[in-house]
């Protein structure tokens, strides 16, 4: 608990200071991608790590967030913060709906049905041309006011700092959540449904609460992404985002808050670093993932999970 908090605060400080040391458009581009990935992985991890189910269709919420932000900003000209709030709310509503159906299922059934929802949404995005412009996607999403001024580098720096802000909010909420009485209930359900029920915990309800929170965070991440690349197409519902989320969470350590952060940083950097290897990069990347799963099945930060709650006798403080 204390370790995670300190680690996250330190990571926050480092993230804020990085632009002073490392400069350049490319570095800032990577920084933005990392912040986006941190949000996405954190949200995915809430379900994988704390509810204990694998939502293979988690991109549904990412895509909904991205489309909501794109449509509201380009059609109605809504400001950045309002579209992001709408993205969160609408993604949460979809989360409520999809979660209410899928959380009655467990294991492989849950995996498949969530995947179906993402696939259905992808098909809708592909075919509802009037709304989504089909496979052409929505392009020309207006830049937010704060990203209008200055040269390209300054704009990227602005995006980076807004990303830090959003990621920080995400992690603050997640931290409060998993270390609260509600988060503990969710963990109890993950560990043992029978014990959870026998002490008065309603498994479905706490699964759903976590699911909706994760969906809202994903929606915000999607909206942020849409603004950054200023284009949204049906591929936001696709499987490639899903795979990166999965690798980040598994490599970093599911069921911990610092895991997805570490995982997101590593995966984004590794993907960029391996660009030198051209076609070989996916093979190398695959090998790294296999190695992590084989040798660190709990992920890099997995050692924390066991110490989720510890009791220290408080020292009597001096008056």
């Amino acid at each position: 608990m204390v370790f995670e908090r300190n680690f996250l605060l330190a990571a926050f400080a480092v993230a804020v200071l990085v632009p002073l040391v490392v400069q350049g458009e490319y570095a800032m581009h990577i920084g933005v991608l990392i912040m986006f990935s941190v949000m996405l992985a954190t949200s995915f991890n809430l379900i994988v790590g704390y509810v204990g189910e694998l939502p293979l269709g988690h991109t549904a919420f990412l895509g909904i967030g991205a489309y909501v932000a794109a449509l509201l900003s380009s059609t109605f000209g809504l400001a950045f913060h309002w579209t992001l709030i709408c993205a969160a709310v609408i993604a949460a509503i979809f989360g409520l709906f999809i979660g209410a159906i899928t959380l009655r299922l467990r294991g492989p059934f849950f995996v498949i049905v969530t995947l179906c929802f993402a696939e259905v949404l992808r098909l809708i995005a592909n075919n509802w041309i009037d709304l989504t412009n089909g496979p052409m996607g929505i392009s020309g999403i207006p830049k937010p006011d704060w990203a209008m001024s200055g040269d390209v580098l300054q704009q990227k720096v602005s995006f980076y700092y807004v990303g830090i802000g959003l990621a920080a909010i995400t992690l603050y909420l997640s931290y409060r959540f998993v270390y609260s009485n509600i988060g503990r209930a969710a963990i109890a359900v993950r560990e043992n449904r029978f014990v959870a029920q026998s002490v008065g915990i309603w498994p479905f309800y706490f699964g759903l609460v976590t699911f909706v929170l994760a969906a809202a965070i994903s929606g915000v991440a999607g909206g942020y992404y849409a603004y950054y690349v200023s284009f949204v197409g049906p591929e936001v519902f696709g499987f490639s985002f899903m795979i990166s989320m999965l690798i980040m969470v598994l490599a970093g350590g599911k069921g911990t808050l610092v895991g997805p952060v570490v995982g997101a940083v590593l995966v984004v950097l590794l993907e960029e670093f391996l660009r030198d290897f051209k076609d070989l990069r996916f093979s190398i990347f695959g090998l790294v993932v296999v190695a992590v799963v084989l040798f660190l099945p709990q992920g890099l930060m997995g050692f924390i999970t066991k110490r989720h709650e510890a009791y220290k006798v408080r020292q009597a403080r001096d008056a």
């Binding site: 009485n181 503990r184 209930a185 963990i187 109890a188 043992n192 002490v199 709650e309 510890a310 009791y311």
Partner: peptide, 17 residues
């Protein structure tokens, strides 16, 4: 039946839900 992944304290604290 206990919550295997948690500490003894974590188990009891969770049960106070």
């Amino acid at each position: 039946n206990v919550l295997k992944g948690l500490t003894v304290f974590g188990n009891v604290l969770t049960a106070r839900h």
